[in-house]
Design a binder for these strands. Structure first.
Length: 119
RNA sequence: UGGGCAGACCAGGCGAUCGCGUGCUUAUGCAUGAGGAAAGUCCGGGCUCCGCAGGGCAGGGAUGACGGAUAACGUCCGCCGCAGGUAACUGUAGGGAAAGUGCAACAGAAACAUUCCGCCGAAACGGGUAAUGCCGUGGUAAGGUUGAAAUGGUGAGGAGCUGUGGAGACACAGCUGCCGUGUAAACCCCAUCCGGAGCAAGACAAAAUGGGCAAUAUGUGGUGCGGCCCGUACCCGCCCAGAGGUAUGUCGCAUGAGGCCGCAGGCAACUGCGGUCCUAGAUGGAUGAUCGUCAGAUACAGAACCCGGCUUACGGUCUGCCCGAACU
RNA sequence: GCGGAUGUGGCGGAAUUGGCAGACGCGCACGGUUCAGGUCCGUGUGAGUAACAUCGUGAAGGUUCGAAUCCUUUCAUCCGCA
């Protein structure tokens, strides 16, 4: 994770490709959109719209998702573009709850490596 | 003890593990990392580009007691007037209505122009009636509606003059008997001030050209200077096709009208001198997660070129003052 | 970063030279018509009061005799440019 730029979605075209052609899984805290990207690594993006709240709350929600994803990351399959979109309910939550929800969503999307989910 | 007014300060600290931006070291670390409002964008500047930042107008905008502070301001300090409050104290766009124009609903006799209604009176004159203040001239000024009043006089109010105090706005006292509704956050007049755009400003680096028509300087045309006119600067062409594919990198970018401490001046805002410190710089956009501990960490809330203010949001602590009650 | 527009009963939307706020339509409530429902007709409909009073144009102040209208600050929503 030293050089971030390669693993982060940046371009508008990448985003619209995921939005249009990707699949999605929702939960109480966040929606995840994902799609195979044909690369050997996985790229991610964390998004908060104005519906979530003011800038403090938007920053907070992104950081929570990022912290949660950092714990899950070793068990995630390679070769996907994943967008995490925050929902307003995430405000005021603790990290473990967010991590649990994201893990469930990723599992149902089939992105988690099989042997790694002991739940 | 209840209610209120004003002001100041804090915005978590320390430790552990994982993680992020920047800098330095290097291959492992070390240092450092959002605010009092970073906000709203309501004002004022710096900086950059528009050649210089120019002139005029019948054009636009802002401000408005007085004295000061400041780089500047519509800000701040002091002070005067007015308004509110029992008080502490608070608010105040606060020039001009005999330069002109407009507006003033309802009510009222009458709304800025006219002496109006009313009341009184056989006392006088004239007219009229079957008769009567019935009508005109007359007398009176008690009454009348209005947010605001007239009309004779007075008072109150404004204005002028004189004296005293003050740096001044102005205050107080006396005199004159000059003026006569309000509204300029209605148009307007007066005074003072203002060029435009904004860091996506802007600078450098990187990127591909080919063809057709016209043609060497004429004044025109185009572009820019918020509007128009003047003036002035720059550009010399127009069309088609192609390439590029929504935006790359570096700089701008943080030492500044800077913070803190002391002394001096000033009622104060603030200023001068000396010492000391330098502590974010992202660009898909860095501060987080899980705990321990302190009596507690809880509100509003996240830098995006940088400063000075204003306004708004909000948790807590402390200090001073005012009013009321009780007790001594 | 720069600039603009709008906010009025439950809803849409009038009233803007400052002078009775809520015209008009929809909806709702009640009554009538019908065997019943719809349609249609009538009455009522901001809060508040026994009835007045009083308060009400996003919010708070101000100017004015008087403010939905003028001014200042503020909140919310929407839009444009780069």
């Amino acid at each position: 994770m030293r050089d971030h730029s390669e693993f982060t979605l940046r371009k508008q075209s990448d985003f619209s490709r995921v939005y249009k052609q990707g699949k999605s899984r929702g939960s109480r805290f966040a929606v995840i959109l994902y799609r195979r990207n044909g690369l050997r690594y996985t790229r991610t993006a964390f998004v908060s719209s104005k519906k979530v709240g003011n800038s403090v709350e938007r920053n907070r929600s992104r950081r929570l998702m990022r912290a949660a994803y950092r714990n899950i990351e070793p068990g995630v399959k390679k070769g996907y573009d994943i967008i995490f979109v925050a929902r307003a309910a995430i405000i005021g939550c603790k990290e473990p709850e967010v991590e649990k929800q994201l893990k469930k969503s990723l599992e149902s999307a089939g992105i988690l490596i099989e042997g790694n989910n002991e739940k």
